[in-house]
Amino acid sequence: MSLRRLPVYLLLDCSSSMTGQPIEQVRQGLRALLDDLSTEPMAVETVYLSVITFNSTAQQVIPLTELMQFKEPQIQASGATALGAALLLLTDCLEKEVRKNTINQKGDWKPLVFLMTDGMPTDAWEVAADALKQQKIANLIAFAAGPGAEVNNLKRITDIVLKSDELSPGALKAFFQWMSQSILRTGKSVQIMATESPVNLPPPPPQIQIVP
């Protein structure tokens, strides 16, 4: 009997526009997220976390790791916004790390992916985006942090897009808090219809709006 995991991928924009307070807020947000999840037994038993950062290139800084063994990554802001590379890497990781149901093993819960970006992509990203949206291999939630991010681009990746009007520490912090609430809710609604999208997202905090 293999463990059913809830894989959670964080795709974080670490381009140079995030320098200073924003990137510090991301570090703190990540720490708070870990603390929040660590107090919920359901999350402790099932959540596996991975962090993919992207600037001029994309890198999986933490492979899919059990919550209690997760070590905070060193995150620095610099360079461009290679969203396409990040999406390709994500697809790759989902294929390699996530277990599907087979005759002999129970698969993982459907993965949750949170994408946070504050700017325009600087590489070719469209093909990777279309592929991801089509394959339905994860529940993807995108967050346009501040005025620099193009909401319509994100809509091409997933139907669930959130945005904040400014790239403020408050908005980033709120997003991380909302993220931990979303993870906990997903872990709680054990069964869903095979065709259903993740219905159980909590309402976003005031600084963040859902893009219809």
């Binding site: 059913r4 149901n101 993982d108 819960w109 069964q191 869903i192 095979a194």
Partner: peptide
């Protein structure tokens, strides 16, 4: 087979 855990009819 296929699919993820928790998806059912």
């Amino acid at each position: 087979p296929n699919g993820f855990s928790g998806e059912t009819q």
